[in-house]
Each structure stands twice: as C-alpha cells, then as structure tokens.
C-alpha cells in the first residue's frame, strides 16, 4: 500500500542538548487511521507538530505524499494536511460558520471572498459533523464537544488528504468521545482521509484505529514483541500487536486489568487503592 506519510530517522529536541524524540521511523498508509499513544511528556504532541510542519526535525526526513515536507509552501501544505489542535477559543466571537469558512481562506480570490464551491465544501463539512443547528452561534457559546466538532468541521472543509488531531476527545464525556471517533472513522472510510490522532483513550483507539504508535516510557533496546528494538523507545504496529497488557503496563508504568471485547482488548488501569487492585492477575 502507498504511504502518504513517511518518517525516517527523525530526531527532535527543544534545546540543543535535549532530545525528546530519537530516530523515529514509520510510515502511514493512505486512508488509514493511526493513533499515537503514550505517557505525558513522551513527545506525542511534538511528533504531531513535526508532521504538521510547525516544527522542523533536528535530523531525519519527513515526506508527505512522496515529497519532503520542507518542499511545500504554507499554502500547498494546507491542502495536504489539516490540523485540529487542543481546544482554543479566539478572543473575538467568530460564529461557527465563519470559523469553518476560514478553512477556505487560501482559496479566496483577490477581493477576499469565498466562491460557490467553497460554500458547498463548507456546507458538506457542517453537514458531516452535525453542526448545522448552531452554525450562526458564536464559538464561545458552545459546549466543549460541540466546539470540537466545529474544529473538525473546519479541518474537513480544508479538503486535505490528512487529518492530524491532538487529543480530540480530552474533556469530553463518553457520548461525545464516541461521536468524535465515529466522525473521524466516517471521514476515513467515506472520504479516504488519512487520520493521525494523538490520544490518551487507548480503549477507543483500539476499537477505531488500524495502527497504533506507542511512544516513550521504556528504555531503548528492551525486548518486547512488535517493538522496533534498535530504533529507540517506541513501537508501531497493528493494534492487537502493540496493545498487549505487558506493553501497556511497561510503557505507562501502571497495573492494568485487561479483557477482550471481541477482536480487540480493553484495559482498565488500577492504582494501589482501587477496590479491585488485588484482583489483577500478575504476569
């Protein structure tokens, strides 16, 4: 299968001495759904910023649709990649439809207005995210879940091949978490979008994603199945291979109870004072 994102030997650190990501290599096939999971501070958001082009790797290459990411202009990269960042509300109250329409900014003509085609794309995005009923309301008046759907609508309206999302379901209740994942899955299967989401929801990720990247948390070179032993502390693979109880426990440093729903496992983290802490079978 063709890879739309190719990451090869990428290292990054925020200062000259420090390294937060070292020698990361992975490919994301066209039209697949990859979740990036891992403990806080492992570099998940950093990786996302590298993929979106807002950070430049210290070494290594990132290729988007077979071309190096630095060969794209800001404008042309925007037609490849759309990003949904962690919730941010602008100071001044733009309405939902104005916000979604902004995704079309780079297509505006000389006079600075959208075309009929832009309106059609925006309406489709609003339709797909079920945000039409509050399209005229200001962003600030929406709940967190509604607002997240608006930002996904904006990313869809960008009509890019790739969607990058940074913790799209944080602060959302169960219903809204599932809504968001359904939305992303629909974008993947109906529009053939490639989705990369940073997430702490390993259970939802297991249910919705094709591939998982588990980042950080254990020393490089330690042996475990599915792990790129020689290439630093991360592993990429099919959900079932990456999400084993041993690996989850090791990466996150917590005891988990795990079971199986059907094809996929689920994990329940239990701390020392949890009621059923003793019930966890030790490996």
């Amino acid at each position: 299968m063709n890879s739309i994102i190719e990451v090869k030997d990428v290292s990054f650190g925020y200062t000259r001495q420090s390294t937060i990501l070292s020698n990361i290599s992975f490919d994301v096939p066209v039209g697949s759904f990859l979740a990036v999971a891992g403990p806080n501070g492992a570099g998940k958001s950093t990786l996302l910023n590298l993929l979106s082009g807002s950070l430049t790797p210290k070494s290594g290459t990132i290729r988007i649709d077979a071309a190096p990411i630095e060969s794209y202009s800001t404008k042309s990269l925007a037609s490849k990649i759309a990003v949904v960042r962690q919730e941010f509300v602008p100071v001044f109250g733009f309405s939902v439809i104005e916000t979604v329409m902004m995704a079309r900014t780079r297509h505006y003509g000389q006079v600075g207005f959208e075309s009929k085609a832009d309106r059609k794309i925006v309406n489709e995005a609003i339709e797909a995210t079920d945000t039409a009923q509050f399209a005229a309301r200001p962003l600030g008046s929406l709940s967190g879940g509604e607002r997240q759907r608006v930002f996904i609508a904006r990313a869809l309206a960008q009509a890019s091949d790739i969607l990058l999302l940074d913790e799209p379901t944080s602060f959302l209740d169960l219903r809204h978490q599932v809504d968001i994942y359904d939305l992303l899955k629909a974008a993947q299967s109906e529009k053939n979008k490639t989705v990369v989401a940073v997430t702490h929801d390993i259970n939802l990720a297991a249910q919705y994603c094709d591939h998982i990247m588990l980042l950080g948390g254990y020393p490089a070179g330690a042996g475990a199945p599915g792990r790129h032993q020689s290439e630093g502390n991360y592993c990429v693979g099919r959900t079932r291979d990456v999400f084993s109880p041993e690996q989850i426990e090791e990466v996150f440093g917590v005891k988990v109870f795990s079971g199986e729903v059907g094809r996929e496992r689920f994990f329940l983290p239990l701390g020392r004072f949890a009621k059923d802490y003793r019930g966890i079978s030790r490996t």
Binding site: S54, L77, I81, M102, T105
Partner: peptide
C-alpha cells in the same frame, strides 16, 4: 489592511492554526 483581512481573520485563532490553514503568518 483590507487586502490581508482574510488572513487577519485566520490569525485570530493563533499562529499555528492560521499556518495550518495555509496562511503565511
């Protein structure tokens, strides 16, 4: 300023967002 006003709109959402929407921030 009117000429760059669509870009100013996008910038209201922060530089990162504006850049990922294709604005040369």
């Amino acid at each position: 300023l009117f000429y760059i006003s669509p870009q100013l709109n996008a910038l209201s959402f922060g530089e990162e967002d504006a850049r990922s929407m294709g604005v040369n921030t």
